[in-house]
Amino acid sequence: MPKKVLLYSLLILFFLVISFGYGFFLSFLDFNKTQDMERISGNTEALQLPEEKLNPGAKIVFVTRYRGCGHELQKENSADDKFLGYTKTQLQEEFKEWKVESFSSSQVILKREVDGICENHYYIGLYDGYVALFQGEPGKNSKVLEKTDIPAEILKEEDRRLLENGIIINSRDEFLKIREGLTH
């Protein structure tokens, strides 16, 4: 019996030593792997490339999406001397209301969304007591394009109320049709 106890004790001791050694070996491998990763990440920071900058002749494209009509209008400008050499980060600081969609040394695309409708739409409304065609919403940065000879006082009450708020239209042809309908 004592031989069996001794044999079992030696087997248990053997498995404990093997288990401890295996655990130590795995932690040693993990430690080396961590050191290698730190060394690699340290090297990439040293090799980090400088940010790309705007070159002479670069284009800045402004894209505005209008929520009211769903249209996107795009305006392209040459980068003036002020922006030459700017990085993406510097441009984002300069144009805070815009999002830098893409950036390269030759072209930048800036995007934004705004409420309202784009300038490709017109409004029919009232101006100085007459039916008029507006570029932009009447009373809000609008421009009178055409003032008709149709006085507001001869319009049906319902038509007058609609025109007081302004009616959005898509073309001058649509304006001509509505104007003709108001007189009949």
Rank of each mutant, 00 (worst) to 15 (best):
L29A: 04
L29R: 12
D149G: 07
A79F: 09
T34E: 13
L47E: 08
E52A: 11
A152K: 14
Y66T: 03
N77G: 00
H184R: 12
N77P: 00
K156M: 10
I124Y: 02
Q74E: 13
I169Y: 12
K111Y: 12
K82A: 03
E51I: 01
M37L: 15
F83V: 06
Q48R: 15
A79E: 01
E146M: 12
V144P: 03
L84D: 02
L49V: 09
E72K: 01
N170E: 12
E51P: 06
G68P: 03
Y122F: 15
N43M: 09
T89M: 03
T34A: 12
D149I: 06
D149A: 08
Y122I: 00
G181H: 08
F62E: 03
I18Q: 07
R65N: 14
G68L: 07
F175S: 03
F83D: 00
Y22F: 14
N170D: 15
E113Q: 06
I154A: 04
V100C: 05
F14A: 10
T87F: 11
P50D: 08
F62W: 13
L145T: 05
A152Q: 15
G181T: 02
D36S: 06
N77D: 05
G23N: 13
M1L: 12
N170S: 11
P50Y: 03
S142T: 00
A152G: 13
S102R: 15
P151Y: 10
E180D: 14
K59Y: 05
A152C: 07
V100D: 06
G42F: 11
L10Y: 04
V5T: 13
Q135V: 01
H71A: 00
K53I: 15
N120H: 14
E174M: 08
I60W: 12
I168T: 10
E180R: 04
R65M: 14
M37R: 11
L133G: 07
P2F: 05
